[in-house]
Deep mutational scan, measured.
Amino acid sequence: MPGGGPEMDDYMETLKDEEDALWENVECNRHMLSRYINPAKLTPYLRQCKVIDEQDEDEVLNAPMLPSKINRAGRLLDILHTKGQRGYVVFLESLEFYYPELYKLVTGKEPTRRFSTIVVEEGHEGLTHFLMNEVIKLQQQMKAKDLQRCELLARLRQLEDEKKQMTLTRVELLTFQERYYKMKEERDSYNDELVKVKDDNYNLAMRYAQLSEEKNMAVMRSRDLQLEIDQLKHRLNKMEEECKLERNQSLKLKNDIENRPKKEQVLELERENEMLKTKNQELQSIIQAGKRSLPDSDKAILDILEHDRKEALEDRQELVNRIYNLQEEARQAEELRDKYLEEKEDLELKCSTLGKDCEMYKHRMNTVMLQLEEVERERDQAFHSRDEAQTQYSQCLIEKDKYRKQIRELEEKNDEMRIEMVRREACIVNLESKLRRLSKDSNNLDQSLPRNLPVTIISQDFGDASPRTNGQEADDSSTSEESPEDSKYFLPYHPPQRRMNLKGIQLQRAKS
């Protein structure tokens, strides 16, 4: 015994090295194993092979420090690593049964499904019991997946119906949107047309105001020219009257000059006056001389005659003075006559000038009245044309509004008919989907599995289990394997941990 101590140590070291070499393959693929292994699927088989106990299973599945599946799978690998070579062998058998691809990844061999460990530990009855539990578990999982698949199909059909409904609603909204954009385009076109009409109206108003201003300026210029013409006519008439007055005065002077006595007659009258003065002096001298030589009687007679002569001279002087006064009065009367005649001529000139001015103003008033009548006639014609244009424009607008209203009513009726057609199509689609759903539900009910399987069917299934373990590994792997896509769409199922009653199965096998 003492001599065998070193050999035992060498043997233990060799086993430990082999164990480390075995687990080295697992550690190399630890990331892939932790990512894809579900500990809840492996722990029943590991407990059946007595590699882990209930406490280890509870620690792996329910520990609060292991929230994710990767953490739980890593903890399970750590626990199996502590179990040595047996933990490695049982772990590979569980991978061979549940995850053939991972088994091939770790060992590089094809899975054979021999279950040597569980046969050694529990015997064939334990293997049968384990396989029966796994089959029931798989059936329950398949039923749950079928239910989930039916629910998802129903949800899918519902979503398809909602999608069709949303599509129809979208078509309806597109119809309304198209109608909205069309009405918006019509409104924009009408606004552009309105702005264009306003611009045209403004341009016409500006043109009309400009023409009116030009016409008023032309009328004012015409009036100024007419006033200048009238003033020139007035000056012409005044000059004609002055010329006529000057002509009359010149004719009067000419007549006075023609009626003036001649120079010879004046000289002859002056000679006669001198001769008479000479004779008068001679007679006076004779009379003076006679007075001195005459007697007293003759002197008395001469005195009487002288007195008579003096009286006659006085009378004559009075007559001469009277004649002079009369001549002066006649001259003054002639001057007054000439003055009055001049005033008369001036008044006649003024009267004729005023008459011509009156005629001029009368003509001017007639011209202004004619212009006013023409302006009123043009204004009435413009008003009439404007009223006709406004009436025609309003009539066109009324007809346009009428046609637009008819078009809008027809478009609304068309839209309502399209919407009604879309709604009826939606109703038809809904009815078809309901009919299809009812038909599929009836087919699913016919094809669904019963909840409680008979014992004979279970025994028959387990009677055929042994050949399947040898020759149909691919079928078992397809039913027991969970793909990543299934984990996305289906909830994980945790079967209840219970042991099955095998009395009925044993009785059935005894009868057979």
Rank of each mutant, 00 (worst) to 15 (best):
V135G: 08
T112W: 02
T14D: 14
Q139E: 09
D146T: 11
K137V: 09
C49K: 15
L76T: 01
V106M: 10
K83C: 05
D53R: 05
L77E: 01
E93F: 04
D56Q: 00
E19P: 11
A40R: 03
C28R: 14
R35L: 04
C28T: 09
G126N: 15
S68E: 00
M8A: 12
L66G: 00
K69S: 04
K50M: 14
V26G: 06
N133D: 06
V89L: 09
M12P: 09
N25R: 10
M12V: 14
K145I: 10
L66V: 00
T43A: 04
D17W: 11
I136A: 07
T82L: 09
K16I: 12
R30F: 00
V135L: 06
M8C: 12
N25H: 11
A40K: 03
L92A: 05
N25F: 08
E96K: 00
G84Y: 01
G4S: 12
K104S: 03
L46N: 03
L33H: 00
N71H: 06
D53A: 05
S94R: 05
K50D: 06
N62V: 01
K69A: 02
H129D: 06
V51T: 06
Y98I: 07
T128V: 09
E13L: 12
L80T: 02
N62A: 07
K83P: 02
L22R: 12
F115H: 15
Q55C: 07
E54C: 06
K50W: 04
L127E: 04
G123L: 15
L131R: 06
D78S: 03
Y36M: 14
K69M: 04
L22F: 12
Y11I: 11
T128K: 02
C49T: 13
R72C: 00
D56S: 03
I79G: 02
K137F: 15
A73H: 00
R113S: 15
I70D: 00
S116L: 06
D17V: 12
L42Q: 00
L33P: 01
D58S: 03
S94H: 00
Q85E: 08
H31Y: 08
M142N: 13
T82W: 04
E122V: 04
I52S: 03
K143N: 13
V90N: 15
G5I: 10
N29A: 03
Y11E: 12
P39F: 04
K109M: 05
Y103S: 08
F115K: 09
K69T: 03
L22V: 08
L138K: 09
V26E: 08
M142P: 08
E101L: 00
T112C: 15
R86L: 07
M65Y: 03
E93V: 06
E57N: 00
E134T: 14
K16H: 10
N38E: 00
R47Q: 01
M8K: 13
E7W: 11
L138E: 14
D9A: 13
T112I: 15
K41A: 02
K50E: 08
G123M: 15
R47H: 03
K50C: 07
S116P: 15
K16C: 09
L80E: 03
E19S: 11
N25E: 09
E110Y: 11
L46G: 01
C49V: 07
D146S: 11
